[in-house]
């Protein structure tokens, strides 16, 4: 079975992003970029399935600018076999990405698509579900456990009330949550090996997908800042403030 793993290049999760002075976007100039943490978990899970002999090949795809090759190489260093980079002019919308992935899905015919539940830049949490819709396949979102069972996959999902397990007919789309696994530390020899793995470069037109978006960003502003608070010296003082100043306790 082949597993397709889409990955996204995003701002490093430790970086606190700033809004540009003209409020048109956030400022990503000279900011450290990395693989989206949820995508990293998806790569790790797919590679583990290959190591267990469940999967035979792991194909990683990224839709982004030319530098997204770095994230594909990282996924290859973890253990993905080959890569596809679909180069776009501007950041692509979730639906556009899902359409490109659908075309790649049709070409590659994977048994499973494993991808992150959300990218930490747009925080959209859409693409996996959209790909499931376009392919007409079942979806197991926010996975904290994935178990293959013949022609099905059992996915334990993190939901607001706790955990829910669903059984999906294969092929299926799985999106990863944080507790699915802890991605391995990438070693230098593997990084060297990854450089020689095959990488295909494409553009959306190769898949007959037009880059469009029905949503435009009018403004990007900094969130309201909280005014600086005070330090209290004791529990007694804290309770006094909460009762008499904030009036949130009676």
């Amino acid at each position: 079975m082949k597993i397709l793993v889409p990955v996204k290049r995003v701002i490093d999760y430790n970086v606190k992003v700033r809004v540009k002075a003209d409020e048109t976007d956030v400022d990503l100039a000279n900011v450290k970029m990395d693989i989206n943490p949820f995508c990293d978990i998806a790569v790790e899970e797919a590679v583990r399935l290959k190591e267990q002999g469940v999967a035979t090949e792991v194909v990683v795809v990224s839709i982004g600018d030319a530098k997204a090759e770095e994230q594909i190489r990282r996924a290859m260093a973890i253990g993905a076999d080959r890569g596809i980079l679909v180069q776009v002019e501007k950041p692509a919308s979730s639906l556009t990405v899902a359409k490109i992935l659908k075309a790649i899905f049709d070409e590659e015919q994977p048994g499973l698509v494993m991808m992150g539940k959300q990218a930490i830049d747009t925080d959209n949490n859409q693409t996996g579900q959209m790909l499931a819709a376009l392919t007409g396949l079942a979806q197991g979102t926010f996975a904290s456990k994935v178990e293959m069972a013949d022609d099905k996959v059992n996915v334990t999902r993190e939901v607001d009330g706790g955990l829910q397990t669903v059984s999906l007919k294969l092929p299926a789309i799985v999106t990863t949550d944080l507790r699915l696994n802890e991605p391995r530390y990438v070693k230098l020899p593997d990084i060297m090996k990854a450089k020689r793995k095959p990488l295909d470069k494409k553009v959306p037109a190769d898949f007959g997908v037009e880059e469009r978006s029905g949503v435009s960003v009018l403004k990007v502003e900094a969130p309201a800042t909280r005014k600086a608070g005070i330090k209290v010296a004791s529990v007694t003082e804290l309770l006094d403030k909460l009762k008499n100043e904030a009036k949130v306790l009676s």
Partner: peptide, 9 residues
């Protein structure tokens, strides 16, 4: 967006 570090209209 960006974990609430920016608000997009």
């Amino acid at each position: 967006i960006y974990a609430g570090n920016a608000i997009a209209t």
